[in-house]
Design a protein around this nucleic acid. Structure first.
Ligand SMILES: [Mn+2]
Ligand SMILES: [Mn+2]
Ligand SMILES: [Mn+2]
Ligand SMILES: [Mn+2]
Lengths: 217, 217
DNA sequence: ATTTTTATCTTGATCAATCAAGATAGGGAG
DNA sequence: CTCCCTATCTTGATTGATCAAGATAAAAAT
């Protein structure tokens, strides 16, 4: 089996492929906070194991086997996050780091118990889809709030990387499923205004809005 | 902080000190399935960090700090085991291995949630005491069933090392708290006979009885 | 077509954890 | 008092993961 280090590389490559179409050595290094030389070395190792197709200097991509492995890690990560929120009552802002470690040690047995206990859920606390045991993923259609025009929207997904933003969103009640009106977009000032029935209006910066994904309603 | 490898060494040393009075390099090697040279190297590292008092060739023992660290790992291990049995509904025969890994990655935060959820328990599923946050441990008084004479007893603790034995005990209803009568001890043949009201009598070998700890009633 | 830039690669080194093989110290046997 | 046995130690090597510094190739700029 892949070591936890390798699992983290695979997850990062999958993430970059989904985000930017392809994973480059430099991007992997940035995301994992490593030097590119270190990443190059690991690319050889992963290639050796048939987890990626790697042509030095030309590019790399997950092999079918690598993609499945990566999806299994993502599945573990997201199920664990949901478990921590639903069963352990931790806040959605504090489960990511914990899951980052647990995802590498939890047994299939225990994972299945969690899955069962949670009723075979399809989405994690941040709105990300949970791959099923075969690696199938429901696509979540959504656009970053930062790109939207004035109108009515529903929160569909939130980036789980910034704990601070998650805390703020939670405090303001901007959780998954929440509906609201984007009442003003002041691109020059980089500020958006959000309004909900019976609530005070809120302002948030574009950088924050980048992390919130919505669908029109 | 100590690495998981170091945590496992500390736990083993604590175990040996409790079991045999002192931990020797060779015993640590046997228990962790390593060569003695490897253990010697780690002894220098642990000594360096002030976790053990080590005099080459003379002996070693946990320092106060090392003892507390070891007890924290044991606390994590046992709380996790209990959580897996009580909350996750895993069998007491399958939680040890899982806890062996989880004990090194779980956060204080999550551990405390488990502790809270379980009602600040004092004993794990096998009857072993759970050290409190300060490392205080309730002593469990018990003797191995293998050493007992015919009479009435209550199961107080069971070794958690043999998954097979745990499964068998569970199937026969010989769980913690269970009372029974030791009706025959045939030392020559290495067989003990156990009887309970309204149940068929059971036979078990001395090696198995070694692992079951009881108190007279 | 050259030159320059820059991402990627290679190399030599380090650190943790480990083993195999051989050295050694100390407690017991004679 | 010497010899020997055995547990413990030391040494040299390996593997995984990493970095710093320098080499190189492909793309971009001139
Ligand atoms: Mn996450
Ligand atoms: Mn991780
Ligand atoms: Mn255990
Ligand atoms: Mn362990």
């Amino acid at each position: 089996m892949a070591t936890s280090t390798e699992e983290n590389y695979l997850k990062t490559i999958l993430h970059l492929e989904e985000e930017k179409g392809a994973a480059k050595v430099g991007d992997i290094a940035t995301e994992l906070q490593l030097t590119s030389g270190t990443v190059t070395t690991m690319m050889h190792a992963l290639s050796e194991q048939g987890l990626i197709d790697y042509a030095p200097r030309k590019g790399l991509k997950l092999s079918e086997e690598g993609r499945l492995s990566a999806l299994q890690v993502v599945r573990r990560h997201r199920l664990i996050e949901l478990f921590l929120v639903e069963v352990m009552n931790l806040d959605w802002s504090e489960v990511h780091d914990e899951a980052e470690d647990l995802e590498h040690v939890i047994s299939d047995r225990l994972l299945d118990r969690m899955d069962e206990m949670l009723g075979r859920p399809t989405h994690d606390p941040h709105g990300d889809p949970i791959p099923d045991r075969e690696g199938k993923v429901t696509v979540v259609v959504s656009t970053s709030l930062a790109k939207m025009e004035v109108g009515s929207y529903r929160v569909v997904r939130v980036s789980d990387e910034s704990s601070d933003l998650l805390e703020w969103l939670n405090q303001k009640g901007l959780t998954i499923g929440q509906e609201f009106e984007l009442s003003r977009e002041d691109r020059a000032a980089g500020i958006l205004e959000i309004r909900r029935a019976g609530e005070e209006s809120l302002q948030l910066g574009l950088e924050a809005a980048e992390q919130v994904f919505v669908e029109a309603i």
